[in-house]
Design a protein around this nucleic acid. Structure first.
Length: 270
DNA sequence: ATATCGACCTGCCGGC
DNA sequence: TGCCGGCAGGTCGATA
């Protein structure tokens, strides 16, 4: 379930295993995921020491002492398996450390990606260059959001899914944040009042922060021999709850917008 | 520039 | 039991 909170939790888990470690083996088991995997990946990683891990939007970042950054995206179905007993179907990439720890990237739909770039060029990375602010940063506030939405005709849900407006939200947390803020998914972005945008920004931060906190509580699982990431408390208020009763007493509705499910409450979201 | 939509993959579930 | 349609946490890139 890789939106920002899941990537954040994934990176935190990987950090415990990889940070400061020397890479003794780096191997891809296929030439591409969504995009080609760089051919020099193995050579650039093998023997390098990992100096830190980070995240940008839904991308995980693994820094090495060769001034490289390994960039991964989990797509829809990606997850890292830690110290797997054996390789499984859809394990596409593996890192092993001098300490004997192994992490394997498993992604059955292959919408994820793996790339490596020089650290100094990270900001210009083709998928980062036009990206919007991190939703949890102080930089992201109602002013910034209002500016970004100015002149935009698309509904607010589409705008929040657009990584160039704000980077890291996906279908689940957009539905959740809009519900928490009481804003209809199809509200015209440009017309949403400043006070409501303030509320929306707060909702986004609250929803993401609590999801990260929930993910954090499962970090123990990450280090388990057969550990895998991806179980998080499913305490969603609307997502996946079509037909269930909203807090206000009305029924949660589901609608499909440009091919994606939208869950909302027509009574409390206007 | 912006908005929309098809495409990329595999797996699972429900219905017939 | 099997087949088929629909659905899934993402987003790029082609089109209008």
């Amino acid at each position: 379930m890789p939106e920002l909170p899941e990537v954040e939790t994934t990176v935190a888990g990987l950090r415990k295993v990889l940070d400061g470690q020397r890479i003794t083996r780096a191997e891809a088991f296929r030439a591409d995921l969504r995009w080609p995997i760089p051919e020099d990946l193995r050579q650039r990683l093998t023997g390098a020491t990992i100096t830190g891990l980070g995240r940008r939007a839904k991308y995980g970042l693994i820094y090495t002492d060769r001034d490289d950054v390994l960039i991964f995206h989990l797509g829809m179905s990606g997850r890292w398996r830690v110290d797997p007993a054996e390789m499984e179907k859809h394990d596409h990439f593996l890192l092993e450390t001098a300490a004997g720890r192994v992490v394997a990237l498993n992604d059955h739909r292959r919408f994820g990606s793996l790339d490596i770039v020089a650290n100094g060029t990270l900001a210009d990375y083709r998928f980062f260059a036009k990206m919007g602010p991190e939703p949890l940063s102080d930089e992201f506030d109602a002013e910034v959001l209002q500016k970004a939405l100015k002149g935009r005709k698309a509904p607010i849900k589409a705008m929040l899914l657009n990584q160039n407006i704000v980077a890291g939200l996906g279908n689940i947390y957009v539905c959740e944040a809009l519900h928490m803020a009481g804003i209809a998914p199809d509200a015209l972005s440009e017309k949403i009042s400043k006070p409501r945008l303030v509320k929306l920004v707060i909702a986004i931060k609250v929803v993401l922060t609590s999801a990260i906190a929930a993910g954090g509580s499962t970090l123990r699982d990450f280090a388990a021999p057969d550990g895998e990431l991806g179980y998080f408390a499913k305490d969603w208020r609307v997502y996946g709850r079509e037909g269930e009763v909203c807090g206000c007493g009305a029924q949660v509705k589901r609608r499909v917008d440009s091919g994606r499910s939208t869950f909302y409450c027509a009574k409390c979201q206007r």
